[in-house]
Design a protein around this nucleic acid. Structure first.
Length: 292
DNA sequence: CCGGACGCCTGTCGGC
DNA sequence: TGCCGACAGGCGTCCG
């Protein structure tokens, strides 16, 4: 099956959509919803690791740790997927090129299909990750105690996240607001794409110092972040069935974008040209008329 | 404590 | 046409 949407570089003539190859929070949530019905309550028959060299190497004893265990529940924390087992949990991160599908174990693996979590029912959860920025780790620790999860900020769609919260955390911070909201200790799940989109929606300049933004504008920003993420999750619902196809679509979805990758194109609000700059080593896009 | 830079990795694309 | 450098990005880690 042809790729649904082709990737458009930031300087190309008409980039309106971007392939959802970059798992941000909505993609992870969509993955969770797609795979959970196929995994919950199932027993792990085998773990096949074809290439253990991900972000951190998959320890050699991981298969022994998880084989025979039942997957009790699946959860998401930030961009981490948590598979709760009878003993311990499996942490899974998609990095920036990871994707998950549920397939018959007989489906031949392709290049970059690094891991199969095989179930007793003849299916497997297949993890593909060309750039290998993802991770898979078993840990006996409860999620709250794990070093990678312990210091994470609140969920942007949860009750602890608000403009008042952001305002309080930003006090004294001189970092650009874009860097600030991409800090997972401040709030989880806001990657580069959605940071750009949220700031445009909230009409805040991405370079503005976080500590110099009013409470009112933080209210707007918190709402923008929630709306942008919730909309993307809602779009993802339409492609859930792709998770059980074996013909290559990883089940992600295309996202319509206001500013990301749209350098020199008209701002959707005022028609002025979208600007591009670098903030914290990341490409940033904004409208210099709308965002202050 | 804070902020900025770096490195991991591969596929894609522009330029020569 | 082929090669090569730049770029994309999450995020832990290191350094000033």
């Amino acid at each position: 099956m042809a790729q649904l949407i082709e990737y458009q570089s930031s300087r190309s003539a008409k980039p309106e959509r971007v392939s959802a190859k970059m798992p941000e929070l909505p993609e992870v949530e969509t993955s969770l919803r797609g795979i959970a019905p196929h995994l919950t309550g199932r027993q792990i028959a085998q773990l096949i690791v074809r290439n253990p060299r991900l972000r951190w190497p998959i320890p050699a004893d991981t298969a022994a740790r998880v084989t025979g265990q039942t997957i009790v529940a699946l959860r998401r924390r930030g961009k981490y997927l948590l598979l709760e087992l009878e003993q311990g949990l499996l942490l899974l991160h998609l990095g920036m090129s990871g994707s998950l599908r549920v397939l018959p174990v007989t489906t031949p693996p392709e290049l970059h299909d690094h891991v199969d979590l095989c179930l007793e029912d003849g299916h497997c959860l297949r993890f593909r990750d060309p750039r290998r920025f993802g991770m898979l780790q078993w840990t006996p620790a409860p999620a709250e105690a794990h070093p990678l999860l312990r210091d994470l900020g609140p969920e942007p769609l949860g009750p602890a996240f608000s403009g008042a919260y952001l305002h309080q955390r930003a006090r004294g911070r001189r970092a650009p607001i874009k860097t600030f909201i991409m800090d997972s200790q401040v709030v989880v799940g806001v990657g580069n794409i959605y940071a750009n989109e949220s700031l445009h929606l909230a009409r805040i300049h991405p370079k503005r110092a976080a500590g110099r933004i009013s409470g009112e504008r933080f209210d707007r920003l918190a709402e923008a972040i929630r709306n942008v993420l919730a909309d993307a999750i809602a779009q993802g619902g339409t492609s859930l069935r792709d998770f059980v196809q074996e013909d290559g679509n990883p089940g992600y979805f295309a996202q319509s974008l206001r500013v990301y990758g749209r350098t020199d194109q008209p701002c959707p609000s005022c028609g002025g040209p979208i600007q591009q700059c670098r903030i914290g080593q990341r490409s940033s896009f904004y409208c210099s008329a709308c965002q202050r």
